[in-house]
Amino acid sequence: MTAFPQVDAYRGGAGLIRVIGHRGARGVMPENTLEGFRFTFDIGVDVLEFDVVMSSDGVPVITHNHALLPSAVRDGQGAWLQREDIKVADLTLKELRDLDVGGLDSRSDYGRRFPDQAFLSGAVMPTLAELCALVQEPQYAHVSLLLELKTDLSDPDIDALRSAQVAAVVDVVRAHGLTERTALHSFDWALLDECRRQAPEMPTSYLSEAPRGEGASCQPDGVTKAGSLPEVVAKAGGQMWCPWFEDVTPELLDEARALSLPVVVWTVNEVDDIVAMIEAGVDGIVTDYPGRVQRLLLERGLGWSARVSTPPVAV
């Protein structure tokens, strides 16, 4: 397997489990905003997991969904959006920047999920270039980017879109000199093949979620027939496996370790679940509440950053 030094940012070890801020720190700050990202870095989190999609004029922007979420987006007059079918890919960067993404509608189901999230006014959807400029600031030289590329698999031109999206994203990362601090990350495993073709210097991270009942799986059809997930990821050329935390077993963790694949689980928010992942010995925990994970690690004498030693815990 080709050595990628970037992967060390996600690899745990003795006394070390990585804390990875999901969309920043979604539990307490508006998600996928520069304000939320800066907060996340300032509390000592070394890794950021975030989502990139494309505007209609070909600009990589940071937002989670292909369509704008009405309960998280306000128009220029401050009113919550009413439609659920407004696609990011149908709007120019200028049109997207006219929207406010600094808070949640507390009356909505989504807003009730995050009652402690701060409410800001004037926060705009950032571009990937703006995030890259932020992590170039000297105080954030330690930050690594777990960059999730989102694709709409229902699009008939999906192959062309994959190629264009990867090219645009890689151009931005390279232009800011951040290839040594970036891993490319996706549920779309065919897109990760394209990432390796266009950016062989950057590691690829494989997201997965096993089928549940009648729900659709977030991993390609036939994967389990080809072997265990760690085996399939390694054979495909991946450098990291990122499963839904409920899919992790001791056997799979052992297989991943034997293959030198860090295991980074998503998205772990409840105390009991965080503790279970700590005790399982995963490499990293993606979470909406990085401070919560930090405290639980400290209580156990564990750290989350190779840069600093773990402070003593008073007893």
Rank of each mutant, 00 (worst) to 15 (best):
Q239P: 02
A168D: 05
I20M: 13
A306D: 15
I43G: 05
C132T: 05
L298V: 06
P126H: 07
V233S: 03
G281I: 14
A236Q: 13
D90A: 14
Q219C: 12
F41S: 03
R38C: 08
R162M: 02
T249Y: 12
S305P: 05
L253H: 07
R23N: 11
G27W: 07
E270V: 13
G111Y: 03
S208G: 11
S56I: 09
H64C: 07
I278K: 08
S154V: 02
D51I: 02
G213C: 00
V143S: 10
E246I: 12
P311K: 13
C132H: 02
D98E: 15
G177A: 04
A276I: 10
S71G: 14
V172R: 04
L91N: 10
V293H: 04
D193M: 03
Q198L: 14
A14F: 14
P30K: 00
P262S: 09
E201C: 03
T2P: 08
E31W: 02
P250H: 07
A183N: 05
G222T: 04
P126A: 13
F50G: 01
P262M: 10
W189P: 06
R23P: 09
L207T: 08
D8I: 04
K150A: 04
R162D: 03
A234I: 00
R307W: 06
W304R: 03
L147P: 00
R18E: 12
T63E: 12
S205P: 01
D221A: 09
T151M: 06
V308N: 13
P250M: 09
A168S: 14
L134Y: 10
